[in-house]
């Protein structure tokens, strides 16, 4: 049977999710995801024409916050867990080609 998801799709999805997969991972993942998708794909055959999708289970609207400032974190606390902070800022490698 044709797998539900193929190697190229696995690689594409891994790139979207920013997950580096080893060759073995790609292999295993392709098999496992296909198996799971085959199961969940059963809902694809249900006739749900006209059924409203649930986006929230609570029946609330307009839950808002007044525009009143609350204290922010001191800079050192904000940066406390950051790898390699610099000059009060979070440091990251340059984006380069990856936009």
């Amino acid at each position: 049977m044709r797998p539900m998801i193929d190697r190229d799709q696995v690689l594409h999805v891994a790139r979207l999710a920013r997950l580096r997969l080893s060759e073995d991972d790609v292999e295993t993942m392709t098999g496992e995801l296909s198996g799971i998708l085959e199961h969940v794909d059963r809902i694809g055959n249900l006739d749900l024409e006209g059924v409203e999708p649930t986006s929230h289970v609570v029946a609330l609207e307009n839950v808002l916050r007044p525009d009143v400032p609350r204290p922010s974190l001191p800079q050192d606390v904000a940066l406390a867990s950051a790898p390699e902070p610099l000059n009060g800022a979070f440091r990251v490698p340059s984006p380069q080609a990856d936009a």
Partner: peptide, 19 residues
């Protein structure tokens, strides 16, 4: 890997760090 927690591949470019 930007604001807290683990960071790996930080000597490469941004994509490498993320992945």
């Amino acid at each position: 890997g930007v604001r807290y927690g683990m960071r790996s591949g930080g000597d490469g470019d941004l994509l490498e760090m993320y992945e």
